[in-house]
Design a protein around this nucleic acid. Structure first.
Lengths: 343, 343
DNA sequence: ATCAGTAATGTAAGAGCTTTCAATGCGAGG
DNA sequence: CCTCGCATTGAAAGCTCTTACATTACTGAT
C-alpha cells in the first residue's frame, strides 16, 4: 500500500494560486466568486481528483447531510421496500442514508439509536411500527433522542417534542377488509395478529370493531398471535394446529403479506379451495401478493406515500419550517384471486 | 428549537477535573488511565449523556468505522438479503453501513462511489454482479476508486489493485442444473438470461456448455435475454410471445428467482403442468422459492457464505493483513416441486 | 540522599474544512 | 484628484477530537 498523502484543500489552493477560503467558496457554490477564478479552481480540482474530506466539513457545519435509518431487518421485503423509497427520496434531496439494522431487542435498538446520534445525523427515521412500544416507558429512549435530532416514525404514532409520524389508518383498513368478508357471509374469520406493536394492535382493534359494528359475536379462539419473524412453514404449522383443535374458520386475515403466504400454504395442504372455501386477505400489498396462486388480496397501506411524506417532512424541518406532527394516509383494499369469489 | 450548545469533551474535562486528553483516553479505552480516574470520568459522561462527536473523531483518526455499501436497489429481495447479511456482519465488527442505492445507470453509480469516497469510508462493498461490466473501460471508475479505499465485490470478478472478490461459480452451477434437465430428457430448455453483467454471462456460458458437453445442438431461439428489472407480468408476456412464435420448449431455467416466478405464472396461464410438462429452475434460492406452488427448485449460490467472506476479508485488510484477492464458493442445487418429476 | 524508571496526566499541535471580518483593487461621483 | 461603495479575495479563528511529547510524582535501587 502506497503512502499517498491525501489531497486537501491546501493543495488545491496552492496549485490554483488562490486562498483556501476561495476554494471553499467554489466548492460550496458561493456566488461571490468571480467566474474566472471559479473556472480555474474547478479545473485544478478536476485535475487532482480532489474530494473534500467530509469529516472536516462535518466538523465545521455540524452536518454531513446524512439521515439515519433504523430498521429491524432489511431482509424483510416490506422494510426493504420502505428503505428503497426513503433512500431514493433522501438522495434526491442531497442526503445520504446511514443504515442501522437493530433486530427486535430493545437493548440493541437503543444502541443503534445512540450510534446514529453520535454520528450527528440530521435526522433519524424509524422504519416499522414495532419501534413504538405500547409500553410507554419503553419509548423513553426515543423521546430523549428527539432532543438531539428530529425523529421520524413510519407506520406508528408516538407523541413527543421533535417527533413526526407518517402512517396509515391501520384500524380502519382492517375494519373495512373484515367487514367485507363478514358481509359476504364469512362469520368466522381467523385473524393472525402481531401483538406488542402499535400497528399490530390497531389492526386487531379494527378486526374486533368489524364484528361489533355488525352485531356479531367475537370469538377469542379466532384471534391468534403470531411472532414477527415466523416463516411460512411456521405459520402453516400454526394454522394446522388451530384446525386440529377443532376450531373452525371460514376465512383468514393476516397482519402482513408474509403471514398470508403461510396461510395459502396451509389451505393448499389442507385441500381447502381458495377463495371458495377459504378466502385469504394479506396486508401491505407487497410484491409478494403476485407470487401466490391465486394472487393474494391485500390491503395497500400506501407505503410510497408514507415514505414520501416522511422525507418531505424531514426536509421541511431541516429547512427550519414548521411541519405537521403527524399525517395519516387512507388505505385501499386490493382485490385479487384469494377473495374474488364468483357470485 | 432551543439553542442548546452540545456537550463536548471540554465540558466533561472540566466537570471531572481532568484534562481532555485523559477524557479522550477513557473514551478510547486506553489502558494507561488509572482505575479511579476512569470511573470518575465515566460517571460524568453518563451523567451528561455525552456522546463524542464522530466528525471530530473522524478528522483525527481518518476513519469513522463506516463501510459503504453500493447496490442497485434494496427493494430487490436478493440485494436486501445480501445487505442484511453484510450489515449484521459489519456491525458485529464495530462498523456501520452507509447505504447508497444507485440504480443501474453508469453515471449514477460513479456518483455514488464518489460520494462514499468523500465520506472516507473504510471500504466499499459493491453488491450485485452488475457493477462489473464486461466492457473493460466501464470499470475504470472502480479501479481508480480502489486507489483510495479497498473495494469488495460481491458476485463478480474484477482484477485490480486493492480489489477483492467473493463469488459463486455461476457457470458450473448453471451447467450442472442444465445437465440435470438435459439428462432427464428435456432437450429444449428455454433460458432467460441477463446480458451485460459478469454473472449473467457466466451463467449463460454454463447453459451453453451443458449442451456441448452432452453433444446436443444449441438452439439460439431458446436463449432469451431479459431486462434486469422486468416484473412478473413482463416475464410472463415475454414467454407467451416466445410460445406464440411457435418456439417449443420443454423446460425453463432463469438467471434469478424473480424471473422464475414469471415463468411459473406463464405455465399456469398456459395450462402446462409443473413439473410434468414444464419443469422450472430458478437461481439464488431466495425466500421467493417457497412462495410458488409447487415450490421453486433453485440454485443456492451461498449468499451467506459470500457475504461472510466479504466481511472477514475487509476486516483482515483493515487490520493490515494480506488477504486473498478472490474466493469462489461452490453452489448447490436445491430440488423442490418445480422439478421433482415423479418417476 | 540521589537517580533512573515508570505510571498517570497535561499541553499543545494538528486533522481539513467553513466563515467572519478585514483588506485590496477598481470605477464612479463629487 | 479624492472618496465612497462594491466586488473579490485573504487571514485567521473555530469546530471537536486524537496523540506525540512533556511533565509530574512516585517507586525502588544504589
Amino acid at each position: 500500500m502506497k503512502v499517498q498523502r491525501t489531497i486537501t484543500i491546501y493543495d488545491i489552493s496552492q496549485r490554483s494560486g488562490v486562498s483556501i477560503a476561495t476554494v471553499s467558496r467554489v466548492i460550496n457554490g458561493s456566488d461571490v466568486v468571480s467566474e474566472e477564478t471559479r473556472k480555474k479552481v474547478l479545473a485544478v480540482i478536476a485535475e487532482c481528483g480532489y474530494t473534500p474530506n467530509a469529516f472536516a466539513r462535518g466538523l465545521g457545519l455540524n452536518t454531513m447531510n446524512t439521515v439515519g435509518i433504523l430498521c429491524a431487518d432489511v431482509a424483510d421485503p416490506f422494510m426493504a421496500q420502505a428503505i428503497s423509497f426513503l433512500e431514493k427520496g433522501l438522495r434526491e434531496n442531497g442526503y445520504d442514508s446511514l443504515l442501522c439494522c437493530t433486530g427486535s431487542l430493545l437493548k440493541d435498538r437503543q444502541k443503534g439509536l445512540d450510534l446514529l446520534l453520535s454520528k450527528h445525523v440530521d435526522g433519524i427515521i424509524l422504519v416499522g411500527s414495532n419501534y413504538v412500544s405500547l409500553d410507554r416507558e419503553k419509548n423513553a429512549y426515543i423521546l430523549s433522542a428527539a432532543a438531539k435530532t428530529p425523529i421520524l416514525i413510519l407506520n406508528a404514532m408516538l407523541e413527543g417534542e421533535n417527533i413526526y409520524c407518517s402512517y396509515c389508518d391501520d384500524r380502519t383498513a382492517t375494519l373495512n377488509a373484515a367487514q367485507m368478508l363478514l358481509k359476504a357471509g364469512r362469520s368466522r374469520i381467523l385473524y393472525l395478529y402481531q401483538a406488542k406493536t402499535y400497528s399490530g394492535v390497531k389492526k386487531l382493534e379494527g378486526y374486533q370493531q368489524a364484528y361489533r359494528l355488525l352485531g356479531l359475536p367475537l370469538n377469542k379462539e379466532l384471534m391468534v398471535e403470531c411472532k414477527a419473524d415466523a416463516g411460512i412453514a411456521e405459520i402453516k404449522a400454526l394454522l394446522e394446529s388451530v384446525a386440529r383443535q377443532g376450531i373452525f374458520f371460514d376465512a383468514i386475515m393476516t397482519a402482513t403479506d408474509d403471514m398470508a403466504l403461510g396461510a395459502v400454504k396451509y389451505a393448499k395442504a389442507a385441500e381447502r379451495k381458495i377463495p371458495e372455501e377459504l378466502p385469504i386477505v394479506g396486508y401491505n400489498n407487497s410484491s409478494l401478493c403476485l407470487c401466490t396462486d391465486p394472487e393474494l388480496s391485500s390491503v395497500d397501506n400506501k407505503l410510497f406515500l408514507i415514505c414520501e411524506n416522511c422525507v418531505t417532512t424531514l426536509m421541511g424541518i431541516l429547512a427550519g419550517e414548521e411541519m405537521p406532527k403527524s399525517r395519516v394516509f387512507p388505505s385501499e383494499f386490493i382485490q385479487r384471486g384469494t377473495t374474488a369469489i364468483p357470485r
